[in-house]
Design a protein around this nucleic acid. Structure first.
Lengths: 162, 162
DNA sequence: AACGATATAGTTGTAGGCGATATAATATAG
DNA sequence: CTATATTATATCGCCTACAACTATATCGTT
């Protein structure tokens, strides 16, 4: 029964039933993986103009929402490990987008702050999501479907991130 | 109007409207990105037992469905570039999972074939998707939602992969 | 046959992701 | 107050991902 639940979607053929769930088309994991990379690619041209990468853009989203935040908190919000964030932040510091400052109260902690330049990117970046979204909606995707999609993904995330 | 469409989902506050679409929570791109990594993590323990990584698993999915296939075709099916696939296949060849053979008809082409060992992983791998899916369904996710999720993602993929 | 265009795979360089581990600061237990 | 555990960040090594480019083979046209 569970076989039909997660990864199985096409009509069962009686032969070959054993491996039906291994077809790429019947997996849920692959569409998520592929869509993720394709969306990143879709953002890329716009992000190139800002001179940043997609994960760097996500870090900026976090900082634009809440500045002066710990490395750990950025990692938690983006569900990334700190050993991914640390070199990323260093590159962003190199570019002059953020500043990293070790806390004086607790010297283990490192606060990340937006520079003037990082703050200024916000206005341009604000236009990006709708530009990408525009394409999808023009391509005939329903708004309700996209919202439902987001909800389902968030359910998966909230479950798997424990 | 489009502002409300792709990335905007929460009720609009009148103040701060300008940057509402930049909140992490209002993005569609982030849930896809995060879910993708979390699903990969969920597969990991099972894949570790087989001694393979997640992208290697995807390559095997393709080969189990259709053996003796070109590098290019694997890349196309997984929506990856060949320069990602090539070193990946070399590692899999090193491990004895696949064999790479240059076509005699057209020497530009390289055929990828499963070895006996690669073929044998299929039986164990067949159990993995339902094990991962089991968790999600037990966590209360609706089957219909997951199917709808898959459809929406495939729509996005078919649009963005052109 | 000759040659430019195209196709296929590979190489190089940069930037994520993450497991394993290290290092140092702080918190806690006894 | 010392020993131990925990926390926060960083380092290292491996494996993707992909842009830009190269090398070679094949095709199409003349």
């Amino acid at each position: 029964m569970l076989l039909t639940v997660f990864c199985y979607v096409c009509s069962l053929e009686l032969y070959d039933m054993k491996y039906e769930q291994l077809k790429l088309e019947n997996q849920l994991c692959f569409p998520v993986y592929a869509a993720s990379r394709l969306i990143t690619r879709a953002y890329q041209p716009y992000l190139n103009e800002l001179g940043i990468t997609y994960p760097q853009y996500l870090v900026l989203l976090v900082l634009w929402e809440e500045d002066n935040i710990l490395v750990n908190d950025i990692a938690r919000k983006l569900i990334l490990n700190t050993n991914t964030i640390t070199p990323l932040l260093k590159r962003m510091e190199q570019q002059g987008l953020v500043e990293r400052k070790r806390s004086e109260v607790d010297e283990r902690k490192v606060c990340v702050l937006l520079t003037e330049e990082g703050e200024q990117l916000k206005a341009t970046a604000a236009l990006i999501p709708q530009k990408v979204g525009e394409h999808l909606v023009n391509a005939g995707l329903e708004v309700d479907d996209l919202l439902a999609l987001k909800d389902s993904l968030n359910s998966i995330i909230s479950f798997l991130s424990k």
